[in-house]
Simulated assay, not measured.
Amino acid sequence: MNLASHPVVASLTPVFLLIALGYFAGRRDWIRESAVRDLSNLVFLLLIPALLFRTMSGVHVETLDLRPLAAYFPAALLLLIVSIAWRGFNRSSVVMALGGVFSNMVMIGITLVELAYGKAALVTLLTLVSVHALILLTVGSVVLELVVAREAREGGERAPHVLETAWSAFKGALIHPIPLPIISGLLFAQTGWSLPAVVDKPLQLLGSAFGPLALVLVGVTLARTPLGGHLKPALWITASKNLLLPLLVGVSAWAWGITGLPLTVMVVAAALPMGANVFLFAQRYEVAQGLTTAAMGLSTVLALFTLSAVMLLMTYVN
């Protein structure tokens, strides 16, 4: 088979080409800093919900395979706990550990998985996406608040109760433009109705605009990401995110007896580069912001090689 026509190469090439074009546009300042936030809001508040709702509106709950949830998240949480224990119980450690387990499933993953494996694979990915932030970001929030509470006690200050923090994190992750349209779409599908054409067509057009714009925005963000002074720790985070997590998820999926397309989607999802939500945590807790930004950029750049290798490997495993 010609390498250029290999399914993995054929699906990865447009993804990284669009990211490269976004990087070029960012370096040329064609998309200025002030416009990036507005474009990000367009993607997250309009395009993503349209795509997610339309995709899940035809999926019946009884056909869903929930084993990927049971296999993926224990592996991710185990790596998170081990990473925190290895680095120490402090704000920087928790943010770095979160960077090593939180995948960019939406901005990169949705487009890549649909291109490489089709609509059936997208259902498996969206099953993971529906609780990905809910689980990992809630756990991350609680652990970070425990660290802050310990610091407050050591400083003689009053800290908020951990249950209050957990509930706040849970609500923030659930009432969000990613899980809400997934859940709404699933609920609509159970009615047995189908979307009328006057609704379905606009949703289709909005959803089709998501992939190119999201990938170009990833490239624009990379153009403004400095790596200086953070290369070594950023490499450790990247190794965890791009290589160790997919290995652990693959072993966990094998233990659950998951094979075929669901196994491939799970491992590829775990091998995706680091998601931008981790940087929001670094900002909120005022720690490791430069390192987190550098790790996100390095993880995305090196994914060109690590993700290609993982996807090629999965073609032989299955």
Rank of each mutant, 00 (worst) to 15 (best):
M107H: 10
Q283M: 12
M266Y: 05
V106T: 13
V251I: 15
P14E: 11
L263Y: 11
G99C: 03
L51W: 03
S168F: 09
T306L: 05
F89W: 07
S103Q: 10
F279I: 13
A270T: 04
L17V: 15
E114P: 00
I183K: 00
G100E: 04
V162S: 15
L263F: 15
N90W: 06
L205I: 11
I84R: 02
V267G: 13
Y72W: 07
A85C: 14
L12P: 09
M314F: 05
G257R: 00
N277E: 08
I258Y: 02
M314Y: 04
T315Q: 15
M266P: 12
T225H: 08
E157I: 07
G219Y: 04
V287I: 11
T138P: 08
L248I: 14
V59N: 10
N277H: 11
A173V: 14
G140H: 07
G275R: 02
N277V: 08
I110R: 04
T315D: 14
F281N: 04
F89S: 12
Q289T: 14
L206H: 08
K232L: 14
M105I: 03
I182Q: 07
G58P: 10
E157Q: 15
S240H: 07
A121D: 11
L261E: 14
G156D: 09
V251R: 04
A25Q: 05
M105V: 12
V123D: 06
V61C: 06
A121G: 07
T225V: 04
A197Y: 06
A214I: 09
W256Q: 14
G88D: 02
R32K: 15
V15E: 08
I183D: 05
S103I: 01
